[in-house]
Design a protein around this nucleic acid. Structure first.
Lengths: 138, 138
DNA sequence: CCGTATCCCTTATGATACTG
DNA sequence: CAGTATCATAAGGGATACGG
């Protein structure tokens, strides 16, 4: 395999690539939320629903099962009435917290810049459609 | 605002929350790929298409515009024929490289564990449907 | 070469109602 | 309480063809 240039991320393009898998998992709209909410400790289903309050039970279940399948959290059923099910991060899941935190911190440090950029972009967009075409590039 | 418990990630649930924005951006199937591919230096549209070879021009354009809008990369049009357009990470975009790298490294270290967990889970699944219902919980 | 325009399909997500 | 089932909608992504 080629070892220079962009090759070291070459396998990122492979659908089976580790990074792709992880980015797919954290790319999930709810997965990262759940993981970060569970950082504090185990929660039961209803507690998760309240915390991540916009999610429907169906979607929440899907996310939880996916995360459980990947070994990132455990699902513990207590044999009692009313039923109680706890979700808790596994050690593996906990190790994801750190990179996720790095991302959160990046986010908090740079959102303002991103938002400013968006405003600029959108303004230029708006101006562009008012201007006649055939205009010299930027 | 409450300062204990899960409150510090409380705003993670807010759709306007910085983290949500960032996770939405990197959650994009192609955005992180593009960013990481551009880590090496500027590339033109066709080069990006070749590198991220499965993506259609439409989708690639969408991703690039979104990233440009967020100030993560620049789009430079050269006034020549045939046309040439270069895409390059901005300093802001470059700062994303590090947290992304952390995630990649996590991925590479832990995929095997995740895959193993999946196999386990799926096996148990298969076994469960063969077993009669009303079985004592795990 | 660098896109845009269309059409189409799969998947994700949501609302709602119901069961163990 | 903790889900499952069903239906409906929308968003994402892809194939293809064409324009500047």
């Amino acid at each position: 395999m080629d070892t220079k240039g962009a090759s070291f991320i070459g396998n990122v393009m492979d659908p089976d690539c580790p990074s792709r898998m992880v980015f797919a998992r954290i790319g999930d709209k709810w997965a990262t939320l759940v993981i970060q909410v569970l950082a504090e400790g185990p929660l039961r289903f209803s507690e998760l629903r309240q915390t991540v309050h916009v999610v429907t039970p169906k979607v929440l279940t899907q996310v939880l099962r996916a995360l459980e399948r990947d070994g990132l959290l455990t699902r513990t059923v207590f044999a009692q009435v009313p039923p109680r099910v706890d979700y808790e991060l596994t050690p593996l899941g906990r190790t994801l917290l750190e990179p996720l935190k790095a991302l959160r911190e990046w986010a908090e440090s740079n959102v303002s810049a991103m938002l400013a950029s968006r405003d600029d972009y959108d303004e230029r967009e708006d101006a562009a459609i008012l201007r006649p075409p055939g205009h010299p590039g930027r």
